[in-house]
């Protein structure tokens, strides 16, 4: 348990740093708002529309495919820390595992699911 303390401290510092830095300018900065200052900063361009706009369904497909490969990576972790102890057999198992997903990858490539048309 005790070797998670650095991790926990990092979490606390990350949250704290983010929260403090995001609010610091609000607390200590002078406030003389004009209409231009209050408008959204967008490289000098007038912001158009709402930020909560609908996005394309294509993102959803990419995100879904990402999760599947994400889960694959999760299974790589326990394999990576043990395969040297088990040997060639483990290597073959993982190759089978990856080959099956590679078939799927070829399939989605050929199907054009990753194409941005």
């Amino acid at each position: 348990m005790s070797n998670y303390i650095p991790l926990f401290l990092m979490l606390v510092i990350a949250f704290g740093f983010g929260a403090i830095m995001a609010n610091l300018s609000k607390w200590i900065g002078p406030k003389k708002p004009t209409k231009e200052k209050l408008s959204t900063y967008e490289s000098g361009m007038e912001p158009i529309g709402t930020t909560r706009d609908r996005i394309s369904i294509k993102y959803y497909i990419v995100a879904m495919l990402f999760i599947i490969f994400d889960i694959e990576i999760v299974f790589l972790y326990p394999w990576a820390v043990t395969f040297d102890k088990i040997g060639v057999f483990a290597l073959g198992e993982m190759f089978l595992f990856l080959a099956l997903l590679f078939i799927g990858y070829i399939y989605i490539l050929k199907k054009g699911a990753l194409q941005w048309d």
Partner: peptide, 27 residues
Amino acid sequence: GKLLLSDYLLPFEIVSIVLLVALIGAT
């Protein structure tokens, strides 16, 4: 990892098939 590559090998390989099915299904 040890258990996954020894006792639970079949479920481990089935996972890849399930992921393959999910991949194709999602597409």
